[in-house]
Design a protein around this nucleic acid. Structure first.
Length: 430
RNA sequence: GGAGAGGUGACCGAGCUGGCUGAAGGUGCACGCCUGCUAAGCGUGUGUGGGUCAAAAGCCCACCGAGGGUUCGAAUCCCUCCCUCUCCGCCA
């Protein structure tokens, strides 16, 4: 969330941020509530100060055997008043908190202003669209040929959007996950975490998914737990409510989890095959850094994510999201879009974001700087990467004329028996 | 799920027959001093958030797992919830 003091001092900047991010938030109600809250707090403090003072006097009178009955009578009504003011204050605070949670983060100065993804800015391109001596087919055809997926049966047991990876398909996916984890751990200095995929309401609020996205998440009603849409949620919240030491920073974590998204309202949009799923796997990077370093860290994370695609020899481009496409909590986001030659389009496989202190403030994650001062730290995260679309690009890029599949060298070790760059199609082993 | 014990400051640990206790004592840490008992001694300091203020100092308010209640007054009494530990049950 945004510091209420900052909002109070810069209401027009906040108003612009809300508009540019296509958010709905009642800033005027917030400012009014803040005003009311402060007035009530002031009254409460003064009443309480008086009460504390008189209580001391009563204590002394009682000790010395004096008569406190008059003061007791007076304080009886004061206590009533305090209770009433306190109740109003509690209400105002609750209302303010609620409104505060609906204010989005302010886009970074470098963010293009625009209403939707058409305003996103291409930052860089790596590699080139591969040439084929034949007409490349899409990933579904390749999966069909090689028995990599069983989508109908996934739909039978759970519903559409719940894929079954089969045989080599399952092994390939697992290989990707292991390859990515190892790369980030060994080459980029991340520490691996294995985290819960069911989290509570406070955790979902900490990273900014709640209250806005409640309808987009799977929920276990009886325990008021939510299935995570990304590992960002549990990992970022591990230090909620804590004060870290500056010497501990930066902290760099990588976690592989299954992710769950209801994708309510996106029916029919890019839903073919593995493009948009309710359940998928993702390797996620999360960093906790000192504020001064967060934008340098953002660039590093982008490179960390890109290196996966480079190792796999997949053509991609990087775009910077415009204000309207930026997520609620993000100040600046790069998307990496990998080229899928069979589908003839770029697919988003990673989102790398700097949240500045927006999440830290919500989750109350602070650090003590070198001078001993306590401040909110900055959080960042980036997919590194999500497997389904990566799988699409991989299958479509490495398909052979015979309908088979070559395996990139970097993945070969993770797949076991298959030769790197095999000239013959990989045979499903069952 | 059942029974019991407990949650206090960076940490350990008093207080819990309600009233100068934001909180003893110890450890740690910081600064200073001392120094032929030296991985020692002495001294001082060492929470967070909010308000007042141009700012600082000062002053005021809140916070002893969370939220309510009783009371003039609660870390201390009562209720609800959460978490940890032990035993039992159940399941992997």
């Amino acid at each position: 969330m945004i510091d209420i003091k900052y909002i109070r001092a810069n209401p027009e900047e906040i108003r612009a941020a809300i508009k540019n991010k296509n958010e709905k938030a009642d800033l005027d109600a917030l400012l009014e509530t803040d005003e009311l809250r402060r007035k009530l707090q002031f009254d409460f403090d003064n009443l309480k100060a008086r009460q504390n003072q008189v209580s001391q006097t009563i204590a002394q009178l009682k000790k010395s055997g004096g008569d406190a009955s008059e003061l007791l009578r007076e304080m009886g009504s004061a206590a009533e008043q305090i209770k009433s003011v306190n109740a109003q204050l509690g209400e105002a605070n609750a209302h303010l908190d609620k409104l505060l949670l609906t204010i989005p983060n302010i886009p970074h100065a470098s963010t293009p202003i625009g209403s939707d993804e058409s305003c996103n800015k291409e930052i860089k391109v790596w590699g080139a669209k591969p040439d084929f001596a034949f007409e490349p087919v899409d990933h579904l055809a390749i999966a069909e040929n090689n028995k990599l997926l069983d989508l109908p049966r996934g739909a039978k047991i759970s519903g559409s959007g719940f894929p079954i990876y089969h045989g080599l398909g399952a092994r390939l996916e697992r290989a990707l996950i292991n390859f990515m984890l190892d790369k980030h751990i060994r080459e980029h200095g991340y520490t691996e975490l294995a985290v819960p995929v069911l989290v509570n309401r406070a955790t979902m609020t900490g990273t900014g998914q709640l209250p806005k996205l409640e309808a987009d998440m799977y929920r276990v009603e009886e325990d008021d737990l939510f299935l995570i849409p990304t590992a960002e949620v549990p990992v970022t919240n591990i230090y909620a409510g804590e004060v870290l030491q500056h010497a501990q920073l930066p902290l760099k974590y990588v976690a592989y989890t299954t992710c769950f998204r209801r994708e309510a309202g996106s029916y029919g949009k890019d839903t073919k095959g593995l493009q948009r799923l309710h359940q998928f796997n993702k390797v996620e990077m999360v960093r906790f850094v000192e504020p001064a370093n967060s934008y340098a860290a953002l660039e590093e994370m982008l490179l960390d994510a890109e290196s996966i695609l480079q190792d796999l020899g997949l053509h991609y481009r990087v775009v910077q999201l415009c204000s309207g496409d930026l997520s609620f909590a993000s100040a600046k986001t790069y998307d990496i879009e990998v080229w899928a030659p069979g589908s003839q389009k770029y697919l988003e496989v990673s989102s790398v974001s700097n949240f500045e202190d927006f999440q830290a403030r919500r989750a109350n994650i602070r650090y003590r700087d070198a001078a001993g001062k306590i401040a909110f730290l900055h959080t960042l995260n980036g997919s590194g990467l999500a497997t389904p679309r990566l799988m699409i690009a991989l299958l479509e890029t490495y398909q052979t004329a015979e309908g088979g599949l070559r395996i990139p060298e970097k993945l070969a070790g993770y797949l076991g028996q298959n030769e790197p760059e095999a000239k013959t199609p990989v045979k499903p082993n069952d």
